[in-house]
């Protein structure tokens, strides 16, 4: 375990030295949060004229004023980003940490040390997961605070910050992020470019996008039950992906089978 922390420390040291990567990943959630709150505030300032009564709305939005409706629609669209970002960031960081290391031929000297391969993998996975989840959760908290402060009514707040969304952020996205890291490890055995690994791992956003569009269309309601159900499925998927990843991340396999 001690060596996993040594690996983690080195990964963060390298990350600090990669300004472009740092800007492109870790500053993204705060930036999006700022834009989201600004947009939320602005649509709330639109004068309340006309009526939303004749619009084809999903049942839970019926009866809202135009201001409330604008804020709910804007808030919900932005809230979805907090489900996507924790997939994107760890995949980018892990791809540089693993595929990048493979490309630079630095893996063999590490494997020659007394480190266990699980320690190496754990260190790299944590180095990608911790900052991504921490900054996403921090940004989500700021987003929720912005919603609470600037919502034109309590109904708006309750329709954006739902128990289902909170559970999805707390339970489903970390599991998706974990699956993303495992997928990067699996892809590392075949690709030599971090960007290729990122592009392939982007497939993970597809189910999230399905959830988003389903919710916008009123077909899916992201309640606590659904969020937990998805969490259970994701737990199995993440466990399976990690199992495959650890089988591939062995000295023998890395040195003789990775291409």
């Amino acid at each position: 375990m001690k060596k996993a922390l040594v690996v983690l420390e080195k990964e963060w040291l390298e990350l600090r030295l990669q300004r472009a990567l740092l800007l492109a990943t870790l500053f993204l959630p705060p930036l999006l949060t700022t834009i989201a709150i600004a947009a939320f505030v602005l649509v709330g300032l639109v004068p309340a004229s006309g009526s939303a009564g004749r619009l084809p709305l999903i049942p839970e939005l019926v009866g809202l004023s135009p201001q409330e409706l604008s804020q709910v629609l804007a808030g919900r669209q932005f809230s979805v980003l907090f489900l996507l970002v924790p997939i994107f960031i760890p995949s980018v960081l892990a791809s540089y940490a693993i595929v990048g290391e493979k490309r630079e031929r630095t893996l063999e000297p590490i494997l020659a040390t007394p480190i266990e391969t699980w320690e190496l993998l754990l260190g790299k996975a944590l180095a990608a997961l911790i900052p991504a989840l921490a900054i996403t959760l921090a940004s989500a908290t700021v987003f929720v605070a912005g919603i609470v402060v600037f919502a034109v009514s309590a109904a708006v707040r309750d329709l954006i910050v739902t128990p289902g969304w909170i559970l999805a952020v707390l339970v489903d996205t970390p599991l998706l992020a974990l699956t993303g890291v495992a997928l990067i490890v699996i892809l590392s055995s075949r690709v030599n470019d971090p960007r290729t690994a990122q592009q392939i791992s982007a497939v993970l956003v597809v189910p999230v996008l399905g959830l988003i569009f389903g919710q916008l269309a009123g077909v899916v309601v992201l309640g606590p039950g659904l969020a937990l159900g998805i969490g259970v499925i994701l737990a199995f998927v993440a466990a399976g992906a990690l199992w495959v990843a650890t089988r591939l991340f062995q000295r023998e396999v890395i040195l003789t089978r990775w291409r």
Binding site: K10, L13, E14, Q18, R105, E108, T113, P114
Partner: peptide
Amino acid sequence: TEQPGLYDRLSARQNLRYFARLYD
């Protein structure tokens, strides 16, 4: 190893410190 396999962004000292710690 056949390829030196060093971390280009890290300094010489940081490279060696990392491996010294991995070597216990």
